[in-house]
Every structure is written in C-alpha cells, then in structure tokens.
C-alpha cells in the first residue's frame, strides 16, 4: 500500500473542499482499502466522509424513497420502508457480500465499487481500465465471469454491484454535490458508463463530487418486486447472472414492468425489450418465456462465457415467474 495522508471531515463543505484539492473519499472502505492494498488504487489523501449526516432513509413527498449515501448496506436492507416498498432493493443488498461487509459498506460506495475482473486487480496484467492503453488481458484470457453485454474491444469487465441492478431497474437517480456546492442529479442509466474506448471512466461524476443520496422515483402501486442471483456458490459470491424485476399489475394486465440484469453487462443491464414485451399483457407461463427470450438481445459472448446467454434468459424467466406468479 502506498503512503497516504488522512483527514476526517464533519461537514459536506469540508468534504467538498478536500475533494476539490484531490482528496479521495472513503466511506466503508471495503472496495478502496482492498484495492489500495493491491496498489490498484494509490490515492495521496483519504477524506473520511463517514461522519457526514447522509445516513437517512426518507419517503419523498410523492411516494418515492431517498436513501442517504452513507446508509450502510445492512441498514438499508433492514429498513422497513425499503422492505415494504421495494423488496427488490433489500433482497439485492442481502444477497451481496457478507454480513460483516454489509455492516461496513455504504450505498454510495456500493454503486461506486469497481470491477472484480482479476486482471484489473492484478497490477502485472494488461488492463485498460487500470492503465489506459495497456490492453485487455481478459479478451483472450480467462473470461468466464466477464460481460456479454455492453462490452467493447477495450474492456469486457462486469459491474459487480447487485444493488445497482435494482436501482437500474427502478430508474433511480443519483444525487451529487459538485465542488461548487451545487446539487445535481443523474439518472441511473447515465450514471454508470459503458467502457467504449475509455474504460477508465466509470461514473458520470467528476473528481471531488460527492454522492449524497440515491432516490427511487414514484412507481404505481401495487408494485411487486424481487431479485434473483445465480452464482458459483450459494452465498458470499458475485453474480454470474441476476435479475431485478418489478411489476405493476392492475385488472389482470401488466401496466408497468421494470427489469434489469446483473453479472452480464459492463454496467447493470436494463432489459427494455423484455419490459416492452410484458406491457399490456396478462401474466402467463408463455408470456414469461417469450419475454425472457429477449433478455440476451445483442449479447456478444466471449470464449468462456457463452453459457451466460442461456443462463441469463433462464434467470429472467424464473424471476418473472417468481414475481409475477405462475398461472
């Protein structure tokens, strides 16, 4: 680990000042400390933001939900408002990492976490995300866990977050404070960036910007939702595939469908074609199968991850059935 100076801030103003001078925010530290130890990350200054007052979970005026950036994963998952209004979020969180890590890690850090690609983590390997221009060892390497959607010739790493898949499905907004103190919000679809030719650019925020909250917009009620995660072992493992599904069914007809997949994309993958297939239809076994058949549209599998194409469709189909019922 490279030496770094450390400062703890108690107001967002102090944080932004330190961020503007090049300081790196640390929240739970579960991504950052790990990557610093691997020397993938080499910040000169850590700015401890854990004391900032960004730990609330509030229902917004119109019936959405605002989760503070420093709410711990464990707290968000256990929160009764989250559990009752958006079970897909609490399920995605509880299927993430371990109880210990969820006690440490925050919602803001979670959506900022970096890929688990082994070549990214290995500073002796070629990786455009870590060292722009050095190449991508995963393209011709062991790429079983890598992405099949949203990839480029420069990077095929997945975004590892589960909660981000739920946020993508629910079309959340990320609230950030700029170093000038001005607030703005970014739609989740624009927040995480596909690699293209600049895989080192991962989020649509600028250096020093501070995430203050993730806001889930209003969705029509009743909304049934849930998260399914498929992995190499039962627990404490990242997704091979996953599906976040939220459905609003009224009068026996699906009026709103929000579906996204994890473990398969360079960013959480919104399944718009699946959503469109569901809208206006009556739930049925045949519908789940037909809609899920569109889940891997546009997929470009690599040598070792062809299995993800079928696995993704089956994951989405199963989760549609679990959430929408079988009839």
């Amino acid at each position: 680990m490279h030496p770094f100076s450390y400062t703890k801030v108690s107001t967002t103003r102090e944080a932004l000042n330190a961020g503007r001078s090049g300081g790196r925010y640390i929240a739970g530290g579960t991504t950052l400390v790990d990557l610093m130890r691997e020397t993938v990350e080499r910040p000169d200054t850590l700015v401890d933001i854990s004391g900032l007052p960004l730990r609330g979970i509030t229902v917004t005026g119109r019936g959405g939900l605002r989760i503070g950036a420093l709410v711990r994963m464990a707290e968000a998952a256990a929160d009764s408002k989250v559990r009752t209004t958006f079970p897909v979020i609490s399920q995605a969180l509880e299927l993430s990492a371990s109880a210990q890590l969820r006690n440490m890690a925050t919602i803001g850090g979670n959506i900022m976490q970096r890929t688990r690609c082994a070549y990214f983590r290995d500073v002796t390997a070629a990786c455009n995300k870590r060292e722009p221009g050095s190449g991508c060892a995963a393209l011709k390497g062991v790429n079983r866990t890598h992405a099949i959607l949203g990839t480029s010739g420069d990077c095929v790493a997945t975004h590892p977050s589960d909660a981000a898949v739920a946020f993508a499905a629910l079309e959340a907004r990320v609230h950030v404070l700029g170093s000038d103190g001005r607030e703005r919000s970014i739609g989740f679809a624009d927040f995480l960036l596909r690699p293209g030719s600049t895989p080192h650019r991962e989020q649509a925020i600028h250096r020093g910007e501070l995430i203050t909250a993730v806001e889930i917009p209003v969705h029509p009620r009743p909304l049934v939702s849930g998260y399914l995660k498929v992995r190499d072992r039962q627990s404490y493992e990242f997704a091979l595939t996953s599906a976040a599904v939220a459905l609003h069914v009224r009068g026996g007809v699906i009026r709103e469908a929000r579906v996204a997949a994890g473990g398969v994309g360079t960013v959480p993958w919104k399944l718009s074609a699946v959503e469109r297939h569901l809208i206006g239809e009556r739930p049925s076994e045949a519908l789940w199968t037909a809609a899920a058949a569109r889940a891997a549209d546009g997929a470009r599998p690599l040598e070792h991850n062809r299995f993800k194409v079928d696995l993704l469709k089956r994951t989405v189909e199963r989760q549609l059935r679990i959430v929408g019922g079988s009839r």
């Binding site: 640390i26 579960t30 850590l46």
Partner: peptide
C-alpha cells in the same frame, strides 16, 4: 461484526 483486515 466487521472485517478488521479492511478497517483502517
């Protein structure tokens, strides 16, 4: 409960 290896 936390992981002390990731705690500075």
């Amino acid at each position: 409960r936390v992981n002390s290896c990731l705690t500075l």
